[in-house]
Amino acid sequence: MFLQVSNLSKTFGKEQVLRNLSFALDAHRMMSVLGRSGSGKTTLLKIIAGLESPDNGRVELEGKAMNETPAHLRNIVYLYQEPLLFPHLNAFENIAFGLRLRKWTEADIRQKTETMLDHLELNGQAKKMPAQLSGGQRQRVAFGRALIVEPKVLLLDEPFGALDTETRTAMQQLLKRMVAGSQITTIFVTHDLKEALLMGDEIALMQDGLLKKYETKADFVQDARTGVQEEIGFWTNIQSR
């Protein structure tokens, strides 16, 4: 398995956020995780990224234990709900940030960042500061900044939570396209049922500190706990009235 998470536990004060959580994910796959707030999803992602340490359990990447590896050496990018663009850098420099850390040559940085801006449909926005960009544009810069370092794993925590419906749909398609193109293994956490079904090659439900991965999307749809049946019931009812 590419990413193997075994028996993770984490407690904050009296609250047990993760209870012996395990799952595995193949390379180049995108897994959506449906989880309501308080389900422990942010904690899970932060532990995988190395930003939190678990009380118990292991995270392995390509067969190597990651627990002792600090965040900046894992090559796992975690994206927050907000784009969190660096306020002192323009769009270009925000995207190029990771390349500058890796001390690439100026010419290579220029070329790669411009290609990325192109893919993100951000031509002409390169010089703009974060405050001058729209919400969708900011989110795109945030993706570009993450994807450009070609991480082994990309972790997305409700990335579209703050966007309006239209931008959200456009961004979903863009993200799917870009992740498929770059073959990056991705975990996508959302509380939106439709988005979870739409985005993932694989699908899982997170509840009460546990993660259940489904064999197929059909299994997910059948499980009463995911709320899909309830949703179907609602629309059928409306129609039959």
């Binding site: 932060k46 190395g50 930003l51 900046h72 894992r74 994206l79 940030f97 850390l101 900044r145």
Partner: peptide, 19 residues
């Protein structure tokens, strides 16, 4: 959060502090 983001993008503490 910004500091953590810089770390996951590969920045060590010194780079994160300075950049």
């Amino acid at each position: 959060a910004m500091e953590q983001l810089s770390a996951t993008l590969g920045g060590n503490k010194r780079q994160t502090f300075l950049r």
